[in-house]
């Protein structure tokens, strides 16, 4: 809803478009960028914009803090009590000129970074659709205790703990939760967003190239929280169509099957569903389907639910 007005402007000019070289140089300097997991080694437009902002802002901050750190140590060392060459000025406690500089340096830095923050907050608002000539893939995400459910309304399939998307196609996520808060995050694609029960949040991401990425929940959601990690496979269009075809053979996801999923527990191997009960996602959002029951057993004594760590998997 909110994204409509902003849609045409999207990505016409990237926040850090003027500074890609600087960003690239800095990124190259970082050991991290080569790393398979690094945020700075993004695999999509949102992630690389965010990585660029991160790098540019870091360089600006470093330009201020490194001299400050050196200056602090230099002042402290030169004016050590045993240094007879240092000039002791016991009454010197004010200088208008220095004060002017002291207030303006952080102020100007913040004016500049504030600009980046303001523009970035709008251009990279997760609710704003991405610019692309391809029709976005719609994915509905439900966080459950403690697994992820991905519904593909246009393909009428669903998967648990595995997200498969075609590379090069924007993906429009609509997210909600069956019980407690979680946050959906694929580090190398960019922006995370909370999932909350009875509400939906919007997120738009795109994978530039094929490959398998790591996705996870970043908002603590209970004892099974570490199990809320999932592979994200960005595949070619044909491979995606093939995956959908394969999934079609799976069981139907109806209210009863969802009720099973919503119970507390973990799912180790990804699974798929071949068809969807109509309006399932809407009924999860408007809470006509009951919430995840939580640790219903042992409610009186506070006994822990039956989650055991994965153990050497």
């Amino acid at each position: 809803m909110r994204g409509d007005a902003a849609r045409p402007q999207r990505r016409q000019a990237r926040v850090s478009a003027a500074l890609p070289h600087l960003g690239a140089i800095a990124a190259a300097g970082l050991v991290l960028s080569g790393c398979q997991m690094s945020l700075l080694n993004a695999k999509g437009p949102v992630g690389s914009d965010e990585a660029n902002i991160l790098i540019v802002a870091s360089i600006i901050m470093l330009a201020i803090i490194v001299p400050t750190m050196i200056g602090t140590l230099a002042f402290a060392w030169w004016f050590r009590a045993s240094n007879t060459r240092a000039h002791y000025r016991p009454d010197w406690a004010f200088s208008g000129k220095i004060e002017l500089v002291i207030w303006s340096v952080p102020f100007l830095t913040i004016v500049f970074l504030g600009g980046i923050a303001w523009i970035g907050a709008h251009r990279l608002d997760p609710a704003v659709p991405l610019d692309s000539d391809r029709t976005p893939l719609r994915v509905q995400v439900v966080s459950l205790d403690w697994k992820w459910l991905f519904l593909y309304p246009d393909q009428q399939v669903a998967s648990v703990n595995e997200l498969v998307v075609p590379a090069g196609t924007p993906v429009q996520f609509v997210l909600t939760s069956s019980s407690v808060w979680n946050a959906f995050f694929v580090p190398r694609l960019g922006s995370m967003i909370y999932t909350m029960r009875g509400m939906t949040s919007q997120l738009n991401l795109m994978a530039d190239q094929e490959g398998t990425l790591h996705g996870l929940s970043t908002h603590f959601s209970g004892d099974g929280f570490p199990h809320m990690q999932f592979p994200v496979r960005a595949v070619s269009d044909t491979a995606f169509a093939g995956w959908v075809q394969g999934a079609k053979g799976g069981p139907r996801l109806d209210t009863a099957a969802y009720g099973e999923l919503a119970r507390q527990g973990t799912v180790d191997a990804p699974r798929t569903y071949g068809s969807l009960e109509p309006g399932l996602f809407a009924r999860i959002v408007d809470q006509t389907i009951p919430k995840g029951p939580g640790p219903a057993q042992g409610a009186e004594t506070g006994a822990p639910p039956t989650v055991k760590p994965k153990g050497g998997s």
Binding site: A57, L124, G190
Partner: peptide, 14 residues
């Protein structure tokens, strides 16, 4: 200050 920039926080939050 980095974390105060919303797009940077989108990938660094939590």
């Amino acid at each position: 200050v980095l974390l105060a920039i919303p797009p940077a926080d989108f990938v660094l939050h939590n």
